[in-house]
Lab assay of single mutants.
Amino acid sequence: IINNLKLIREKKKISQSELAALLEVSRQTINGIEKNKYNPSLQLALKIAYYLNTPLEDIFQW
């Protein structure tokens, strides 16, 4: 999986903590996703895309 979450999140000036709060997950979860240590569920990936107002395929590429 190619993961552009960190790049997109930083472009939008959103911290890991802010995104985690919006998604109701821990900051460690966001960190793990960004470091490719954790693959989000489809539901979480869709929520990330929604809150970042970015197409899912721009954030994650399988």
Rank of each mutant, 00 (worst) to 15 (best):
I1K: 10
I1A: 09
I1Q: 09
I1W: 15
I1D: 07
I2K: 14
I2P: 09
I2W: 12
N3M: 04
N3Y: 02
N3Q: 05
N3G: 03
N3D: 01
N3S: 06
N3A: 04
N3L: 03
N3H: 04
N3V: 06
N4T: 05
N4K: 10
L5P: 01
K6V: 07
K6A: 10
K6L: 07
K6R: 14
L7W: 10
L7H: 13
L7T: 14
L7S: 14
I8Y: 10
I8S: 04
R9D: 01
R9L: 05
R9S: 02
R9A: 02
R9I: 03
E10H: 09
E10C: 09
E10G: 06
E10T: 13
E10V: 11
K11P: 02
K11R: 14
K11A: 14
K12W: 05
K12M: 10
K12F: 05
K13E: 09
K13Q: 13
K13A: 10
K13L: 10
K13H: 12
I14N: 01
I14Y: 08
I14W: 06
I14R: 04
S15L: 06
S15T: 14
S15D: 06
Q16Y: 04
Q16W: 03
Q16F: 02
S17A: 14
E18L: 07
E18F: 08
E18I: 07
E18S: 10
L19W: 03
L19F: 07
L19I: 04
L19P: 00
L19T: 00
A20T: 02
A20P: 00
A20M: 04
A20N: 01
A20G: 07
A20V: 03
A20W: 03
A20H: 04
A21D: 13
A21E: 12
A21C: 11
L22A: 15
L22F: 14
L22K: 12
L23Y: 02
L23F: 02
L23K: 00
L23A: 11
L23Q: 00
L23S: 06
L23D: 00
E24A: 13
E24S: 13
E24P: 06
E24T: 08
V25T: 06
V25A: 03
V25L: 06
S26F: 04
S26H: 07
S26C: 05
S26Q: 06
R27I: 15
R27G: 08
R27S: 12
Q28I: 11
Q28S: 13
Q28F: 09
Q28Y: 10
Q28C: 12
Q28N: 12
Q28P: 07
T29Y: 15
T29S: 08
T29A: 10
I30Y: 06
I30L: 13
I30D: 00
I30Q: 01
I30F: 03
I30A: 01
N31A: 14
N31P: 02
G32Y: 15
G32F: 13
I33Q: 00
I33E: 00
E34D: 02
N36M: 12
N36Y: 09
N36W: 07
N36V: 04
K37I: 13
K37Q: 14
K37L: 15
K37P: 03
K37V: 13
K37E: 14
K37C: 14
Y38A: 08
Y38S: 09
Y38D: 05
Y38V: 14
Y38R: 10
N39E: 13
N39A: 15
N39C: 15
N39V: 15
N39I: 15
N39S: 14
P40Q: 01
P40M: 06
P40E: 01
P40V: 11
S41R: 07
S41D: 09
L42G: 05
L42K: 08
L42N: 05
Q43F: 10
Q43M: 13
Q43L: 14
L44G: 00
L44K: 02
L44N: 04
L44W: 03
L44S: 02
A45K: 11
A45P: 00
A45H: 02
A45N: 01
L46D: 04
L46S: 07
L46V: 09
K47Y: 04
K47S: 07
K47R: 12
K47H: 05
I48R: 00
I48C: 04
I48A: 04
I48W: 03
I48L: 08
A49F: 03
A49N: 01
A49G: 05
Y50S: 07
Y50E: 08
Y50L: 11
L52G: 02
L52F: 06
L52Y: 01
L52P: 00
L52R: 01
L52C: 03
N53S: 12
N53G: 11
T54S: 08
P55E: 06
P55T: 07
P55N: 07
P55H: 05
P55Y: 04
L56R: 02
L56E: 02
L56N: 02
L56Y: 06
L56D: 01
E57I: 08
E57H: 11
E57F: 07
E57P: 06
E57D: 12
D58P: 01
D58S: 09
I59A: 01
I59E: 00
I59W: 02
F60V: 01
F60G: 00
F60A: 00
F60W: 10
F60P: 01
F60T: 00
F60S: 00
Q61K: 10
Q61Y: 14
Q61S: 13
Q61V: 09
Q61R: 10
W62T: 10
W62M: 12
W62Q: 09
W62S: 08
